[in-house]
Simulated assay, not measured.
Amino acid sequence: MEIFVSVSGRICLTLHVLFLFIGAVVGQDTCTMLTGSTCVCAFPDGTKIDLTPLAGTNKPGFDYKEPEGGGDYSYAYNPCTGFSDGGDLGTCSKVAACQRSKDLSHYYNIGNPSTAEFSGTGDLISYTGGEEGRQTDVQLICDKNTNTPKYVVEGQTGDKQYKLQVTSCHICRGGCPPGSGKKSLSFGSILCILFVVLVFVYLIGGIIFNRYARGASGKEVIPNVSLWEEFPLLVKDGFVFVASCCKSDSSYESI
């Protein structure tokens, strides 16, 4: 009997220590809302999730959008500060999220910014205090390659419950990586740069070749000089051709 009590006591003590250890580990990586903030949480190591760059000023950072499957309502969202919309038609006054009917006849508050609360992992922020108990969950997806935020509306997921989704590098722990805000060159820009480089190589290379390989001088050092001398006349002929509507004079003998 004493052996059984001793063994069971050791098991209980081991389980107790194990639970304390798990709780301590989990607690060490919890993102806690900063005092006085509604959109910034910090981890114990000092890194933060800061939604401030995603917020609009006196307007939603994420404008009204319908769920991907369509619907009678669209949804707007703004982290950090509240926005107002709808005038006398609804209750969207200084809200974090607003639900708007398709015919613009109804506006509903579906979350107040003052009620914002991050999940422990920082991948979700919730808002309550909406009209008639409405509440909204915003899923936060970290993508270090997405500097321009992506906004997806899932819409109503339950009774007076709504879900939105935001993807951005600003949601990542510590914010966007250096250089993520730089825009890459478009295909057209790359073509323009290549064209300028090729023209430069053509002119300089041609001039050097004609001068030292062929012993040319004066305007003769310009590559294909005869072509460039005729170029204005060719352009003129082209304009005349287009202006005449591609018609040539023709005459027919009467029979």
Score class of each variant (00 low, 15 high):
133 G>E: 04
56 G>K: 08
117 E>I: 10
35 T>Y: 06
221 V>M: 07
94 K>F: 06
63 D>P: 05
77 Y>R: 00
21 F>N: 09
57 T>C: 07
185 L>W: 07
237 D>R: 15
52 T>P: 08
49 I>M: 08
160 K>P: 00
148 T>W: 00
61 G>I: 05
74 S>N: 10
95 V>K: 01
68 E>N: 10
70 G>H: 01
119 S>Q: 10
86 G>P: 03
42 A>D: 07
72 D>Y: 01
138 V>R: 04
137 D>F: 12
32 T>A: 13
166 V>I: 15
177 P>D: 06
217 S>H: 12
153 V>K: 05
65 K>S: 13
33 M>T: 12
91 T>N: 13
129 G>E: 09
34 L>N: 05
237 D>K: 15
106 H>D: 12
236 K>V: 14
131 E>W: 09
249 D>L: 12
115 T>N: 02
194 L>K: 03
232 P>A: 11
195 F>N: 08
25 V>H: 03
179 G>H: 00
207 I>G: 04
125 I>N: 00
70 G>D: 05
22 I>C: 14
73 Y>Q: 05
175 G>H: 03
150 K>C: 03
254 S>R: 00
163 K>P: 07
167 T>L: 06
22 I>K: 05
186 S>W: 03
151 Y>Q: 06
19 F>C: 07
180 S>L: 07
59 K>S: 14
153 V>T: 11
222 I>G: 05
186 S>Y: 02
171 I>T: 04
213 A>G: 11
15 L>Q: 04
131 E>P: 09
195 F>V: 10
28 Q>N: 15
168 S>W: 02
53 P>A: 04
216 A>Q: 15
31 C>V: 08
131 E>L: 08
212 Y>P: 09
3 I>T: 13
105 S>Y: 01
122 G>Y: 05
36 G>M: 04
63 D>F: 06
69 G>R: 10
222 I>F: 15
69 G>D: 08
163 K>E: 13
33 M>Q: 12
177 P>N: 01
183 K>L: 12
158 G>L: 09
134 R>I: 05
162 Y>E: 07
224 N>T: 07
39 C>G: 11
206 G>A: 01
83 F>S: 01
114 S>E: 15
102 K>L: 11
82 G>I: 00
227 L>S: 03
219 K>A: 13
10 R>E: 13
15 L>N: 09
109 N>K: 04
59 K>I: 03
33 M>N: 06
55 A>C: 02
1 M>H: 13
205 G>V: 06
216 A>C: 11
8 S>L: 15
71 G>K: 02
208 I>E: 08
31 C>R: 04
118 F>A: 06
154 E>V: 11
178 P>M: 07
105 S>D: 03
236 K>R: 14
42 A>T: 15
65 K>F: 02
42 A>R: 15
209 F>L: 09
64 Y>V: 09
123 D>V: 00
98 C>W: 01
